[in-house]
Amino acid sequence: MLLIKKYTIYSLVIIAIAAIFTYVSIPIYKNIVTIKNDIWTTIPSAGDPKRSVYTRAFISTQGLFALSKPESVYFEANNDIEEISLNGSLCYILSGNEIQSASIIPRWWSLTIYNNDGYLVESTEKQYSYNSENIIYNSNGEFEVYLGHRPNKNISNWLKTPTEDLFSVVLRVYQPGEEFFSNLSRVDLPIVKKVDC
């Protein structure tokens, strides 16, 4: 009886150690394999069959069915340009130019806001994202998206942020071309700046 109790405790300790290793290692591994581009991070060819088991495990936590090169690349921003976490109690302006590398324009792209759980943020306007076809550009060819609770009269594009919770912005770029994939850390991507609400 004492022996069973002893080995049960050992088993539980082993499971606890394994759980701790897993809990700690997946985010660490994410930091190792991700490419950083200013505020954005990306895992190149996230759905690739040649990816490591850690990448597969991490992607499983993010949405299971990721695409691979050359079809699409996903970027995620959790911080503003001051490296401070995006927070629903604050307001931001996301601004950028046409997303492309050299002369190759991607097939399409989109910018989507997700709450801390990875789901779309509740919005009575049902505007959860903007894409390359429905975003409104300024007269100088750039675009701005206001990220806040209420619309901003000076900015045409508005995405509602969650109330007092962290959030993230995901940029999907479809068929961006080989050069884009070769310059994931250098391509010109939008920036997110904190502004007064």
């Binding site: 949405g63 299971l64 989109s110 989507t112 999907r172």
Partner: peptide, 8 residues
């Protein structure tokens, strides 16, 4: 159904 669905 899935985390991070795209509304586009």
């Amino acid at each position: 159904g899935l985390k991070r669905p795209s509304s586009d």
